[in-house]
Amino acid sequence: MPSAESSTDRSTSSSTDDTLDLHLPDELTALIDEERAVLARADVPPRAHPGPPSPWTGPDLLDSVAEWGPATGRSDVFRLVPVSIDRDLPLVARWMNDPAVAAFWGLAGPDEIAGAHLRAQLEGDGRSVPCLGVLNGTPMSYWEVYRADLDPIARHYAARPHDTGLHLLIGAVADRGRGFGTALLRTVSDLVLDNRPSCTRVIAEPDIRNTPSVAAFLGAGFRFHAELELPEKRAALMIRDRAHRHLL
């Protein structure tokens, strides 16, 4: 569904500091440094995720996520890097085994549980691309960018063509509950709108019980649209409209 705002949004969003300001307070920078040290001990080099080329070889339903440029704030650079099983599975599985994450993702256990979840996307029909969120060269979050209009969730709301959904997991416990998720969600939803001109809405469906997640979406410019009764959860349908992205 083409949008008249597409070219304007693409040309102005990268220069809007309040949209892409990822400047971190000193204490949060220290926590990122701690996470970098953990990755080093786990034999995952901090700069092992430089970006393309992508491991993805399936149909391109999401406008080449691997080729999306970075979001650059005042002093930080954030990019989405499609997951590689061989490279990233130990890290993703470790995050999934955090009890707070497992309560909502249900992927705790041996690495192969998370591996099967990743492979289902990487070897699927292209409607969902799993990515690492890499901040200043360090992987610090896990994302799924998916075509909501082609997903089973489309049976539960009035989906529009090219609706694009987001799932987010912040890896380090210390990075949660500090407003960091709000900045990330605004940044990544802007990346979607900047790189997918046919997409007029970014959507999400966090568990209604996950009040910190719902609050983060609201702070990032999403609006609460409805409660959805999904097979696996009761969800809050959150929507960020292209037309209102610079107003909220």
Results as ranks from 00 to 15, higher is better:
Pro152Ser: 03
Thr72Trp: 02
Trp143Lys: 12
Asn97Leu: 13
Ser75His: 14
Leu61Ile: 06
Leu118Val: 06
Gly58Val: 10
Ile170Ser: 05
Ala71Gly: 02
Asp175Glu: 07
Cys131Ala: 08
Thr164Tyr: 08
Trp68Ala: 00
Ala120Tyr: 05
Ala100Pro: 00
Val77Ala: 12
Arg176Val: 09
Pro70Cys: 11
Tyr146Gly: 12
Leu61Pro: 00
Val81His: 04
Asp63Met: 11
Pro59Phe: 11
Ala172Leu: 09
Ala66Tyr: 01
Asp163Met: 02
Arg79Gly: 00
Leu118Asn: 01
Asp149Glu: 11
Gly133Thr: 09
Gly181Thr: 02
Arg155Val: 07
Ala158Leu: 14
Val81Ser: 06
Ala172Asn: 08
Leu169Phe: 01
Ala103Trp: 00
Ala148Gln: 09
Arg147Leu: 10
Leu132Val: 08
Gly124Lys: 07
Thr182Trp: 01
Arg119Asp: 08
Val81Gly: 10
Leu89Ala: 03
Asp151Met: 03
Leu185Asp: 04
Ala103Cys: 04
Pro110His: 10
Ile113Ala: 06
Asp149Gly: 03
Ala158Met: 13
Gly171Ile: 04
Ile113Met: 03
Gly73Arg: 00
Ala103Met: 05
Arg74His: 10
Val129Gly: 04
Ala71Asp: 00
His117Ile: 04
Trp68Pro: 00
Val101Leu: 11
Ala93Gly: 05
Leu184Ile: 13
Asp63Gln: 13
Gly165His: 05
Arg79Asp: 00
Val77Asp: 06
Ala102Ser: 14
Leu135Asn: 02
Leu89Pro: 04
Ala154Ile: 03
Thr138Glu: 06
Asp88Ser: 11
Val77Asn: 02
Val145Met: 11
Pro90Val: 11
Ala159Arg: 01
Thr72Ala: 10
Val173Gly: 07
Val101Met: 13
Val129Phe: 10
Ser128Asn: 12
Gly177Asp: 08
Ala66Pro: 01
Ile170Tyr: 01
Thr57Leu: 15
Ala114Asn: 10
Ala120Cys: 07
Ala183His: 13
Trp105Thr: 07
Pro59Tyr: 11
Pro130Phe: 08
Gly179Asp: 09
Met140Val: 11
Glu144Phe: 01
Ser75Met: 02
Leu135Val: 03
Gly115Ile: 01
Arg160Gln: 14
Arg119Gly: 09
Gly165Ser: 07
Gly181Asn: 06
Arg160Ser: 12
Ala66Val: 01
Leu168Arg: 02
Tyr142Trp: 13
Ser64Ala: 15
Thr164Cys: 15
Trp143Gly: 10
Arg155Met: 14
Ala148Glu: 14
Asn97Ala: 14
Pro130Trp: 02
Met96Cys: 14
Val173Lys: 15
Asn136Thr: 10
Met140Asp: 00
Arg119Ala: 13
